[in-house]
Amino acid sequence: MSEKSNALRMARYNSWQNNAMIGAANQLPAPERQRDFGTFFKSIEATFSHIFWADQIWLSRFGVVEPIKLGIPESTGLITDWDRFQTDRKALDQQLYDWVEGLDESWFAGELAWYSGAVGRDMVKPRAQVIGHIFNHQTHHRGQIHAMLSMAGVNSGITDLAMMEE
Score class of each variant (00 low, 15 high):
residue 83 D to H: 13
residue 29 P to L: 03
residue 157 G to R: 02
residue 105 E to N: 04
residue 49 S to G: 07
residue 97 Y to I: 01
residue 72 I to C: 07
residue 108 F to P: 07
residue 145 I to Q: 01
residue 163 M to F: 12
residue 34 Q to P: 00
residue 118 A to C: 02
residue 129 Q to F: 08
residue 75 S to M: 06
residue 145 I to M: 02
residue 130 V to G: 05
residue 74 E to V: 07
residue 157 G to W: 03
residue 24 A to R: 01
residue 6 N to Y: 13
residue 102 G to R: 06
residue 148 M to I: 00
residue 89 R to E: 00
residue 58 W to Y: 15
residue 119 V to E: 12
residue 105 E to M: 01
residue 53 W to R: 00
residue 129 Q to D: 12
residue 138 Q to S: 02
residue 10 M to T: 08
residue 9 R to N: 12
residue 18 N to P: 07
residue 96 L to A: 15
residue 39 T to D: 06
residue 132 G to A: 10
residue 88 D to I: 04
residue 40 F to P: 05
residue 148 M to T: 00
residue 76 T to E: 07
residue 72 I to S: 12
residue 41 F to Y: 05
residue 87 T to Y: 05
residue 43 S to V: 14
residue 10 M to H: 14
residue 133 H to I: 11
residue 79 I to T: 03
residue 153 G to F: 00
residue 62 F to Y: 14
residue 89 R to L: 00
residue 109 A to W: 06
residue 45 E to M: 10
residue 5 S to L: 14
residue 29 P to D: 11
residue 97 Y to N: 03
residue 47 T to S: 05
residue 6 N to H: 10
residue 63 G to D: 12
residue 102 G to N: 09
residue 125 K to R: 13
residue 103 L to I: 05
residue 48 F to R: 00
residue 27 Q to Y: 00
residue 72 I to W: 06
residue 5 S to W: 10
residue 81 D to W: 01
residue 23 G to L: 09
residue 56 Q to A: 11
residue 84 R to N: 11
residue 39 T to M: 14
residue 6 N to E: 09
residue 105 E to F: 00
residue 44 I to T: 06
residue 115 Y to V: 09
residue 56 Q to I: 09
residue 111 E to R: 11
residue 27 Q to M: 05
residue 113 A to V: 14
residue 55 D to P: 07
residue 150 S to E: 09
residue 148 M to F: 00
residue 101 E to F: 05
residue 155 N to Y: 13
residue 142 R to M: 09
residue 13 Y to D: 08
residue 159 T to P: 08
residue 20 A to G: 06
residue 6 N to R: 13
residue 23 G to R: 06
residue 96 L to T: 15
residue 165 E to M: 01
residue 120 G to N: 04
residue 96 L to Q: 14
residue 68 I to P: 13
residue 117 G to T: 14
residue 70 L to P: 06
residue 157 G to N: 03
residue 69 K to A: 14
residue 146 H to A: 15
residue 83 D to Q: 15
residue 47 T to A: 03
residue 11 A to C: 03
residue 87 T to W: 02
residue 27 Q to S: 07
residue 14 N to H: 15
residue 137 H to C: 04
residue 8 L to S: 00
residue 55 D to L: 07
residue 92 L to W: 07
residue 46 A to S: 11
residue 161 L to N: 01
residue 7 A to P: 02
residue 81 D to I: 01
residue 35 R to P: 02
residue 4 K to I: 08
residue 155 N to G: 06
residue 136 N to C: 05
residue 54 A to R: 12
residue 95 Q to M: 10
residue 85 F to I: 07
residue 47 T to L: 04
residue 104 D to K: 13
residue 116 S to W: 05
residue 36 D to S: 03
residue 157 G to A: 03
residue 43 S to L: 13
residue 2 S to K: 04
residue 135 F to Q: 07
residue 26 N to D: 15
residue 111 E to K: 14
residue 28 L to K: 08
residue 44 I to E: 07
residue 73 P to T: 09
residue 51 I to H: 01
residue 29 P to S: 09
residue 43 S to R: 13
residue 106 S to I: 11
residue 132 G to Y: 10
residue 98 D to K: 07
residue 130 V to I: 15
residue 149 L to N: 11
residue 82 W to R: 08
residue 53 W to L: 02
residue 22 I to G: 05
residue 31 P to A: 12
residue 156 S to D: 01
residue 22 I to P: 06
residue 116 S to A: 05
residue 72 I to F: 10
residue 158 I to A: 12
residue 35 R to C: 01
residue 142 R to T: 04
residue 36 D to H: 03
residue 112 L to G: 08
residue 76 T to G: 11
residue 142 R to C: 06
